[in-house]
Amino acid sequence: MTTELPITEADLQAYADGRLAEGRRAEIVAWLAMRPEEAERLAQYRGQGELLRALYDPVLDEPVPKRLRTVARRGPRLRNLARVAGWVALGAALGAIAGWELRALESGTPPALAEGASIARSAAVAHVTYSPEVRHPVEVGADQEAHLVAWLSKRLGAPVRAPALDAVGFSLIGGRLLPGDGDAAAGVNPSPVAQFMYQSAKGQRVTLYVRTEAGDQGETAFRFAREGNVRVFYWIDRNFGYALSTADMDRPELLRVANLVYKQLNP
């Protein structure tokens, strides 16, 4: 029999990672041969590694954004210079809306507007993330609309609806659940957010971003924001905040869609 060292969880992890010396590995193999459940668990750990790489390795092949390349090439900085450069770059990267938020904060604008700006930005980011997706634009397709709406309502903790936009030439593709922003500074935990995606016959896409607001916020007018090439109309209607985003239409066209969304939601 072997006079092996006791087998620890760390040994098992190293085994799963294929990082044991041959002798030790053989001991573990023998040990596992008598413990199929442990062997199964470790096989699943290995599977996780493969899945993780399948999920994230494609990032390696994505083109590197120019802003990152630029910063990487910059070279060592003197402290103060770097700090200034850093803030300038950061400001540029955050873009128009963030700048607007910053100004809103500085000038003591009422919270509702800052709130609205944040929904516009989050919606724009979500739009940019998911609308270019060809294969997986949504989690649940329009063919299961009832399920989609029930699922999102359950997760948001309030009844949401997917407005019908056929009258302006857009049909529902489906929707997905997204993490909310929350407001850490104010101690507000994020509740999830729903995104419905629509497409026109010409392939234009719009997304409707819906989040719950704390309490009845009354109603605001439509507000317009622009983040990069994404245009957003956003508004608050009682317990919900809405933001309608597109990168494929100009402002008047988007407004037409926004009007219909509003009407559909307030029959």
Binding site: L68, R79, L90
Partner: peptide, 18 residues
């Protein structure tokens, strides 16, 4: 999130040079 991740990379590169 992609944008947040790239922001993190950017901040990292800034910090690295500092």
């Amino acid at each position: 999130d992609r944008a947040a991740a790239d922001d993190l990379v950017q901040d990292t590169l800034e910090r690295a040079w500092i």
